[in-house]
């Protein structure tokens, strides 16, 4: 068998025993999802990331977090950049719960206002706050202070 014909071993991300699998993340947003979840940090455990993985609807990103079950607030934050993501809570290798992300009405402390002259970007004791308006597959954030909106590239403005 020639070198060219040698089968390339398939590299798989192993199933996890306990934790969370975030599936159907908008392709290219996996690293922003990690950012929202404050990963990596010293206690984040093993995290696997698939970027541009083939799927029925094209390509997607997938994040597997071992030993951590995401709570509702964390899941909702992910919806800002990956509105079609699904959350699978894994217990003992089995999918114990499967939910879709839910777009929250308001978010605070996740995204920075794009207006450099917004009071929320100055040295004041407040965190950024936005109202969230879903519009089909698109999401628009409106700053609760200056009312400037963000609808493109929300992942580029994460705090």
């Amino acid at each position: 068998m020639s070198l060219e014909e040698t089968p390339i071993p398939e590299i798989r991300v192993h199933p996890i025993r306990n934790g969370t699998v975030i599936d159907h993340i908008t392709a290219g947003q996996a690293l922003n999802v990690l950012n929202i979840l404050n990963i990596p940090n010293p206690s984040s455990g093993v995290v696997s990331v698939l970027i541009n993985a083939p799927s029925v609807h094209g390509i997607k990103d997938v994040v597997k977090i071992e030993g951590r079950e995401l709570n509702v607030e964390e899941v909702d934050r992910i919806s800002l950049i990956a509105p079609n993501a699904t959350i699978n809570i894994i217990r003992n290798f089995e999918v114990s719960e499967k939910t879709h992300v839910h777009i929250p009405e308001k978010v605070s402390g996740v995204v920075k206002c794009i207006n450099p002259n917004c009071i929320s970007n100055s040295n004041e004791p407040v965190t950024s706050r936005f109202t969230v308006k879903p519009d089909g597959r698109k999401i628009t954030l409106r700053c609760s202070y200056c009312e400037r909106t963000i609808s493109e590239g929300i992942g580029d403005h994460l705090l």
Binding site: N117, I119, S122, V126, Y145, E147
Partner: peptide, 12 residues
Amino acid sequence: HNKEGAAQLASE
């Protein structure tokens, strides 16, 4: 104030 959103912040 010179910054947008200052009055909203003040009201809080």
